[in-house]
Design a protein around this nucleic acid. Structure first.
Lengths: 112, 112
DNA sequence: ACATCAACTTACAATTAGTAAGTTTTAAGG
DNA sequence: CCTTAAAACTTACTAATTGTAAGTTGATGT
């Protein structure tokens, strides 16, 4: 599977995992799996995230094509975010992470 | 799937994705899927990682129970790292990430 | 005995994240 | 309408994490 000096697959995997591993990205996508949400709803659903980082991560996710930003009633202050097909497809990654957590009792891992 | 105010599953998922999302963690596990490796071999297989962070991440992964550290010939300077069963199980997460990358043409996403 | 290599450490600079306060539209109440 | 408040950001600044580069320690090889 892995060549000593890794190439195409390895480097795109590297890029991908560093991108989706950026702080809060996983949680934001997870939250939007339940359907489109307003900015303040996402904020409320993710305890601990700050305005600054939420805005930044949302913009990055929009740039990456995983999220769409919609202005409701063409108003600047009524925004809705929703997953694109690529963002939705990420659900399967989340499910495999959840399976892995169950399998290896992750709570115990982080409680040391 | 997701309740408005997320609970047990959500928070362990959060912990898990923040942990595996820490810089280089994904790459280190990926590299060790090919079998046990010496410190310098892991270092060589992951372009860009520094000594400092490699040591730090390896220690964290050992603490989390995803990697075993073995001293060869009981020498301090001959070390081998290998995945534990929990670490190995992470392979399925990696595979789902790779499927997702193929599906959504990730190269294009990061090249903006 | 000397140089070299593996596996770290340490010190410090640069980047990224967290905190808190301020802005600007929009909507709602009196 | 005039004021207040909320949504969706910005900005300025502090704290934490990462990157860089050099140094340390204990084998190994010649």
């Amino acid at each position: 599977m892995t060549q000593p000096n890794c190439s195409h697959i390895c480097s795109s995997y590297h890029q991908a995992i560093e991108f989706i591993g950026k702080r809060w990205v996983g949680m934001i996508i997870y939250t939007l799996l339940a359907g489109p949400k307003r900015y303040y709803e996402i904020h409320a659903a993710i305890p601990g995230i700050s305005d600054r980082l939420l805005t930044e991560r949302l913009n990055e996710l929009v740039d990456a094509g995983l999220i769409n930003k919609k202005f409701i009633d063409s108003s600047i202050k009524k925004v809705e975010y929703e997953l694109t097909p690529n963002g939705l497809a990420f659900q399967e990654v989340i499910q495999s992470i959840q399976k892995w957590i169950d399998l290896c009792d992750f709570e115990q891992i982080t409680k040391k």
